[in-house]
Design a protein around this nucleic acid. Structure first.
Length: 476
RNA sequence: GGCGACGUAGCCAAGUGGUAAGGCAGAAGUCUGCAAAACUUCCAUUCACCAGUUCAAAUCUGGUCGUCGCCUCCA
């Protein structure tokens, strides 16, 4: 039984899909106006882990991650609609059209997804290709009388949605009281949000624009997720994931729009990824203290280690991201990979052994951990506890062909979730006849040196062999 | 000011009422000329602090201190 912490109720809940055996997952994806950083990916990896685990559990998973390629606002206040569109700003900065910016950073993003071994989603819909669907929702909202028009756009009147704030724990009253934002005079409440923005005023030169019943303009930020999740996943979806900073106002606003337009519950389970910090400092684009995936791979860290670092930290606790963490992840991965090699190269015996029951109990323990709100720590403990007794069986020669196959099969199942192990059997490098003769010669010389206790010469030969790619391990 | 999360060994970290998983690092040992790997053993009388509830609390309640996030771009 899979339990998940629902940010809406702030409780762990037993997962029940809308449709039996099927799961729909919507992930708030990147805004493609610059390089995505590992903070972004840590959030997407939470979704990837969820997707992969539910597949492991046998569900048919439909995962959608949007690409936000129409800008929302930059350094100023989204609620009062000051500030500049991010895509437009990037366009000016890089002297490219907004469309070039969008496609360029989307390409980079897709490459990074591949590098980090993401499960491909069912669809990565672009906001700009769903303007019609957004307008449809905006019209529905208009029909229900929850929006009003101002000189610069169409706004959702949050007083028409009394539950506004239920996700972030705010109430409309509390929001008003704690307001730190300047009031936009045209708006009834500072927390009313734009559904559609008109071209004009400081948006006069907005490059991305479309026709709508309210004139030429562009959609409000929150609308795209309401539109695209409905189109691809339906009116009520199982999971909606994103960073915790998206709770307010983004997800609140999505809820208000979708639930008003559809007259149905929007999302059954909300999952929010805690922030990644670097050296205990907030990591953000504005502070500039972030790493991209290529920053890290260029430093020599493996994609697997980067992936594992984010996956192995629980998604609801803050992760203090450091290079030490990545190195430790690499060690853990190496440990499993060494074990896999050992299993693949092991000699098999006849007769019955304990191995199958070890697999069974480890698997149960693993599932128990993952079933509990993706408790990877507990699940990993099960795997560490698995290696030891199996290795014992291998070393004592109590390991049959079936065991060997089942151990590999089990680890491959696990890796369908983690996707960090390597199952390629490391074959010895192939050498030419001449090289082989040379190597044998060196080994013989070294053995003579060892017999004569000429250790320095023996070690020198060992170094030389290592350089040729020959691993030398002495046994008694 | 409003909303929320959290504080477990040197580090990472699990554990929501029954007496502290696991990993890394460290120590000792087996093996070994050395090294690597593997294996064995050790490594929190204690869970930020103070009260309280209880036969029993890291776990529940109240308070104190501290850290972090959201409320303004960010996943």
């Amino acid at each position: 039984m899979f339990q998940i912490y629902n940010s809406m109720t702030r409780k762990k809940e037993i997962f029940k899909p809308v449709e039996e055996n099927k799961v729909s997952i919507y992930t708030c994806g990147p805004t493609v106006y610059s390089n995505a950083h590992v903070g972004n990916f840590s959030s997407f990896l939470m979704a990837d882990l969820l997707v992969r685990y539910l597949k492991f559990k046998g569900y048919q998973v439909k995962w959608v991650m949007n690409i936000t390629d129409v800008g929302h606002l930059t350094d100023d206040n989204e609620l009062t609609d000051s500030g500049e569109d991010k895509m437009e700003a990037a366009s000016r900065r890089e002297n490219r059209t907004v469309w070039e910016i969008a496609r360029h950073y989307e390409d980079l993003f897709m490459k990074d997804l591949k590098t980090l071994k993401f499960m491909p989603a069912f669809k990565y819909p672009r906001a700009t290709e769903h303007i019609e669907e957004m307008i449809e929702i905006a019209k529905a909202l208009e029909d229900k009388g929850v929006v009003y028009e101002t000189s610069d756009g169409i706004y959702f009147d949050i007083s028409k949605f009394p539950e506004y704030g239920k996700l972030s724990g705010n109430t409309i009253d509390a929001l008003q009281a704690g307001a730190r934002v300047d009031v936009n005079e045209d708006k009834k409440s500072p927390f009313d949000f734009a559904v559609w923005k008109k071209i004009g005023g400081k948006n006069l030169n907005h490059a991305m624009k479309w026709d709508s019943p309210w004139g030429t303009g562009f959609p409000g930020w929150h609308l795209e997720c309401s539109a695209m999740s409905r189109k691809y996943l339906g009116e009520t979806i199982d999971f909606h994931t994103g960073g915790e900073d998206n709770k307010f106002p983004h997800h609140e606003s999505e809820i208000a729009q979708s639930e008003t337009a559809n007259g149905k519950k929007f999302v059954n389970y909300w999952m929010h990824k805690s922030r990644v910090v670097v050296n205990n400092e907030k990591m953000s684009k504005s502070l500039g203290n972030f790493f991209t995936v290529s920053d890290l791979t260029e430093k020599g860290f493996s994609p697997e280690a980067i992936r594992f670092t984010f996956i192995s930290a629980h998604y609801r606790s803050k992760l203090n991201f450091t290079e030490e963490q990545i190195l430790e992840s690499q060690k853990t991965i190496d440990k499993f990979n060494d074990f896999i090699q050992e299993v693949m190269k092991s000699e098999v015996s006849e007769g019955s052994t304990q191995v199958l029951s070890i697999i069974k109990s480890s698997k149960q323990q693993f599932i128990k951990g993952m079933d509990d709100d993706l408790n990877v720590s507990a699940a990993l403990a099960a795997l560490f506890g698995f290696i030891k007794p199996v290795r014992k069986n291998i070393n004592s020669g109590s390991f049959n062909q079936k065991d060997k196959e089942e151990v590999i099969k089990f680890l491959k199942e696990i890796d369908s979730i983690f996707s960090v192990f390597s199952f390629e059997e490391k074959k010895g490098k192939s050498f030419s006849e001449e090289e082989k003769r040379m190597i044998e010669n060196l080994i013989e010389q070294r053995n003579i040196c060892r017999k004569e206790k000429n250790w320095s010469e023996a070690d020198r030969i060992r170094d030389e062999l290592n350089k040729m790619g020959v691993e030398v391990v002495d046994k008694k």
